[in-house]
């Protein structure tokens, strides 16, 4: 019986400005393989299906348990983490591409620094007085913690930006992830205190108003973060603030 194999069709690109192209690799099939372990297999023997020895595929990965967000890529047209995509059930030629909403560094590795910059712009932190010992933090009811926890699992993976029609090369829209984080900070009793700073960022160019409510983001978020809840709530908060600012002027 011939050995079972699986074919990966990978979109490659040598530098940020060079032309992309596809290459196919055939590797022994193992049900517990995932996309990253298959890419590792390629590194050990970087030969294409056509028998050409090539540079191993460059990819971004770290935790390998879908918690660091590094390995986000587009697999058979769907954006997700490569490490948690098992080979089992995937079938024949699997197309693997880098995300399209971020600049490609090389092959499957993309530059998501704009997501981290957005977090900075949105003041997504709790402004503590200092790190010296001030005793425990504020009490928080378990149901508040449980709700906030949903948002705290965002790993800045970029799936929600990749899927969002409003995020594109002509728009400055920050995307759903940062709105979720701004909302998270405002769930915390201390974070509530500087809500206004964050709302200012959410009201600026590329802020929450640019969301077209297409809801693609929630569907692709691997952590099932209720992003549209955050978008709705932050949208309402910004409207209230807008009115308030109008009358206070």
């Amino acid at each position: 019986m011939p050995e079972q194999t699986q074919v990966l069709r990978i979109k490659r690109q040598e530098t940020p400005n060079s032309e992309p192209y596809y290459e196919e690799f055939e590797i022994p099939y193992l049900p517990h393989h995932n996309i990253i372990s298959m890419l590792m297999e390629i590194r050990r023997n970087p030969v294409t299906r056509q028998g050409k020895r090539v540079a191993p595929v460059v990819f971004d990965a770290n935790c390998l348990e879908e918690v660091c967000g590094s390995c986000t890529m587009v697999i058979n047209g769907r954006v997700r983490q490569g490490c948690s995509q098992l080979a089992e059930g995937l079938g024949g030629p699997v197309t693997v591409e880098p995300m399209s909403k971020f600049p490609v560094i090389r092959d499957l590795w993309v530059d998501r620094s704009k997501m981290f910059e957005a977090l900075m712009k949105a003041h997504a932190w709790i402004p503590i007085d200092g790190t010296y010992d001030l005793g425990p933090g504020p009490r928080i009811a378990p149901h508040v913690q449980e709700f906030a926890y949903l948002f705290s699992r965002c790993m800045t993976c970029g799936c929600c930006l990749e899927a969002c029609p409003q995020v594109n090369s002509h728009s400055k829209f920050m995307g759903a992830a940062v709105i979720g984080q701004a909302y998270l900070m405002s769930q915390h009793p201390t974070g509530k205190m500087n809500l206004d700073e964050r709302l200012d960022a959410m009201m600026s160019e590329g802020g929450v108003a640019d969301c077209g409510n297409a809801q693609n983001c929630v569907e692709v978020c691997p952590k099932e973060i209720p992003l549209t809840t955050a978008i709705g709530a932050v949208g309402r908060q910004t409207s209230i603030k807008w009115l308030r600012d109008l009358f206070m002027k």
Binding site: P136, G137, R139, I140, A141, P142, A148, M185, H188, T190
Partner: peptide, 20 residues
Amino acid sequence: SIIYLFDRMGVMFNRTPEGL
């Protein structure tokens, strides 16, 4: 005190019914 600092920095630690 290290745990308390994280608590103040907003880590969503699990809570008891009393909010501790």
